[in-house]
């Protein structure tokens, strides 16, 4: 399986490229007033308002480093029928590699109320989480994001 690797603080993560819509540079985001603290802001992607989640804030490991390799990964909002897009802000978004397929990642706790980095694999550089989108962003968070998308849609 081909996966995009990135970092959230000290944690290394990988996300399957089939789940990704596109990777874009870290553009200037418009701050969303009265939004949750982990919401980095919103920007317009091909006529569509896209909310961006700061993954560092989401799992409380400081701020996203101000490097060129810090990029926004555009993914469809999990469980959304209209497949509206959300952005995930992460660091070291610079490499794609081949990983062994792990089937359906079902490791660790399945507490859907808190963000979860996903099952762990070990490669030459150390531990890596294989990220699963609906576990990284639980339903409660998805609802807030959906509300944000909805409000901007209409």
């Amino acid at each position: 399986m081909l996966a995009l690797t990135f970092q959230i603080g000290p944690n290394r993560l990988a996300l399957g490229v089939r789940e990704i819509k596109e990777v874009v540079p870290r553009v200037n985001l418009k701050p969303a007033p009265f939004g949750p603290s982990w919401l980095a802001g919103v920007f317009v992607y091909r006529g569509q308002v896209v909310p961006v989640v700061d993954l560092h804030k989401l799992i409380a490991v400081g701020n996203c480093p101000d490097f060129l390799s810090s990029r926004i990964i555009l993914v469809p909002l999990p469980g959304d029928p209209r497949e509206r897009l959300i952005g995930l802000l992460a660091g070291q978004v610079a490499d794609i590699r081949e990983l062994p397929s792990m089937g359906n990642g079902s490791s660790g706790n399945s507490d859907s109320s808190r963000p979860d980095l996903g099952p762990v694999i070990v490669d030459a550089e150390g531990i890596m989480h294989l990220a699963v989108l609906d576990r990284v962003i639980p339903a409660a968070y998805r609802q807030q994001l959906s509300a944000l998308c909805h409000s901007t849609d209409s």
Binding site: L2, L4, V17, R18, I20, E22, V23, V24, P25, L68, S69, R71, V93, A94, D95, I96
Partner: peptide, 21 residues
């Protein structure tokens, strides 16, 4: 040069994503 390299990297990532799809 660094910016160009960065753009190239981004381009290759998106190309890889599209190729995989």
């Amino acid at each position: 040069i660094t910016k160009v390299a960065d753009q190239t990297n981004l381009l290759s990532i998106n190309a890889a994503i599209e190729a995989e799809k």
